[in-house]
Simulated assay, not measured.
Amino acid sequence: MKRSPFQGSEPALQVRNPKPSTTFHGEPELLWASIPEDYSTRESDTELAPKYPLIKKRSKHYDSGPLGLKTFWEKIASSRRLWILDTHFGSKNLLFLRDQMELAPALSDFHLITAEKNVRKTFKSIRKILEEKHRLVADATFGVTEIDRHDFPYLHDRFAVTDDELWHFGGTVGCLQAAMTAVSRGWDARERHFISLFEEIRKLHNLEGALRQ
Score class of each variant (00 low, 15 high):
3 R>Y: 07
5 P>K: 09
8 G>T: 13
8 G>L: 03
9 S>N: 15
10 E>N: 10
24 F>V: 02
24 F>G: 00
27 E>A: 09
36 P>E: 03
38 D>H: 06
41 T>Y: 07
46 T>A: 11
46 T>V: 06
48 L>R: 10
49 A>P: 08
53 P>S: 08
54 L>A: 12
58 R>L: 06
60 K>P: 02
62 Y>E: 02
64 S>R: 15
68 G>Q: 09
70 K>M: 10
76 I>L: 11
79 S>P: 11
80 R>F: 00
84 I>Q: 07
85 L>S: 06
87 T>P: 00
88 H>I: 00
89 F>M: 07
89 F>K: 03
91 S>W: 02
97 L>R: 08
99 D>M: 03
101 M>V: 10
109 D>R: 02
112 L>G: 02
115 A>L: 05
115 A>Y: 01
115 A>V: 01
116 E>Q: 15
117 K>P: 08
120 R>G: 15
121 K>F: 10
122 T>H: 09
125 S>W: 08
126 I>C: 11
131 E>W: 04
133 K>I: 01
134 H>Y: 05
141 T>K: 09
142 F>R: 05
148 D>Y: 12
149 R>H: 06
166 L>K: 07
167 W>E: 01
175 C>V: 06
176 L>A: 01
177 Q>T: 13
178 A>T: 00
179 A>R: 10
180 M>K: 11
182 A>M: 08
187 W>N: 04
187 W>M: 13
188 D>K: 03
193 H>Y: 09
196 S>A: 13
199 E>R: 05
200 E>V: 11
201 I>G: 06
201 I>S: 07
204 L>N: 12
205 H>D: 15
205 H>K: 11
206 N>G: 14
211 L>A: 10
212 R>D: 12
